[in-house]
Each structure stands twice: as structure tokens, then as C-alpha cells.
């Protein structure tokens, strides 16, 4: 065979191969990015669900535990702030306040055996626990997806494609609560 033709064929093959791998890498990055976005949407769904549950919960508790007005009001206020929060950072902060208020309410409620025995309250409590869990798992999944995406972005050969199309890494959903982070100090 003609050597020129051979070289041309080899060149053509190399170009075709690189184009194909480029496309595969690009599509892989887009898929990962969308998966991360999707995981974020899942967090939003669960936050919304938690907001929807709270009025019902507060009404049920109110009937039994009238002395706990302040705790209940705190929950309602925190919910209002969380629902109206703008921007990711504010939202995370407000949701954490809401978690705290809800946690206090759940502690207080333990002193009311009739309430604990109420069927309606029991199912609400199960829903709330489950929503909190789902929120946790959604966040976990989101962080995992962000990590996969980030790993892909920064490793060869996908980093070349990423640099060319200017893919940006997504931020982690971190807990900003200082209390949860700090290890207790031990004094001797």
C-alpha cells in the first residue's frame, strides 16, 4: 500500500479517536454536574416537606402543652425565617435554626404522656423523623456527587475538557454549626 495513504489513515484514526474520547469525557462531566444538581433539588424537596409538616405539628402539640407557648412560637418563627430565606448561605443558617427549635420542642414534648400516646402526634413524629433523615441522606448524596464531579474535574484527562469548557466545581453542603464541629475541650 502507498505509505502516504497509510500515514493519512493513521492520522485520521487518531483524530477520530481523540474526537470520540473528547465527546465521551464532555458528556461524562455534564452527567455528573446534572447529578449533583439533581441531588440538590432532592434537598430542596425535603426542606419544603419539613416546612409543610410544622404547622400541623404545632397545632397538635398546642392542644396538649399550652405551657410551652414560647417553644412553639420559636418553632413558628424559625420556620417563617427559613421559608423566607434568600441565598444559599442564609438558607442553610435558617434551616439550622429551625432544626434547633424543633429539637427543643421534641425534648419538651417528652413530658406529656397523653400527647405521646396521641395517634396523630405519633404519625407526625414518624413523618418528622423520616423527613430529617431524608434531609440528611439527601445532603450526603449531594456531597458525594459533588465529590465525584470534583474528582473528575481535577484529574487527567477530563481536566483538559473541563478547562476548555470552563466547568466549575459545585460547593459542598457543609454544616456551619460551630457547636457540632468543635470537639469538647478538656481542661486538666
Amino acid at each position: 500500500m502507498d505509505p502516504v495513504l497509510l500515514i493519512l489513515l493513521a492520522l485520521g484514526g487518531a483524530v477520530a479517536l481523540s474526537v470520540i474520547s473528547f465527546i465521551v469525557l464532555y458528556n461524562g462531566l455534564v452527567t455528573l454536574k446534572n447529578q449533583a444538581k439533581n441531588a440538590w433539588a432532592q434537598i430542596d424537596v425535603q426542606l419544603k416537606r419539613r416546612h409543610d409538616l410544622i404547622p400541623n405539628l404545632v397545632n397538635t402539640v398546642k392542644g396538649y402543652a399550652e405551657h410551652e407557648q414560647t417553644t412553639l412560637e420559636n418553632v413558628i418563627k424559625a420556620r417563617g425565617q427559613a421559608a423566607g430565606a434568600q441565598g444559599t448561605n442564609d438558607q442553610i443558617q435558617a434551616e439550622q435554626n429551625l432544626s434547633g427549635a424543633l429539637g427543643r420542642l421534641m425534648l419538651v414534648v417528652e413530658q406529656y404522656p397523653d400527647l405521646q400516646a396521641n395517634e396523630n402526634f405519633m404519625s407526625l413524629q414518624e413523618e418528622l423523623t423520616s423527613t430529617e433523615n431524608k434531609l440528611g441522606f439527601a445532603r450526603q448524596l449531594y456531597n458525594d456527587q459533588v465529590l465525584f464531579y470534583k474528582n473528575k474535574l481535577e484529574t487527567f484527562p477530563a481536566n483538559m475538557v473541563a478547562a476548555f469548557f470552563q466547568f466549575q466545581p459545585e460547593p459542598y453542603f457543609e454544616l456551619e454549626n460551630q457547636q457540632e464541629r468543635q470537639a469538647p475541650e478538656v481542661a486538666f
Binding site: 441531588a39 432532592q42 423520616s130 450526603q140
Partner: peptide
């Protein structure tokens, strides 16, 4: 069975 259903939902989310 809300408990079972919720747990399955939770794990579906966790596993994506």
C-alpha cells in the same frame, strides 16, 4: 406501614 415506607424512601435517596 408508614415506617417501612419511609425507611425505604430514605435509603432510595441515600443510594440515589
Amino acid at each position: 406501614c408508614p415506617r417501612l415506607y419511609n425507611v425505604v424512601e430514605e435509603m432510595t435517596i441515600a443510594a440515589g
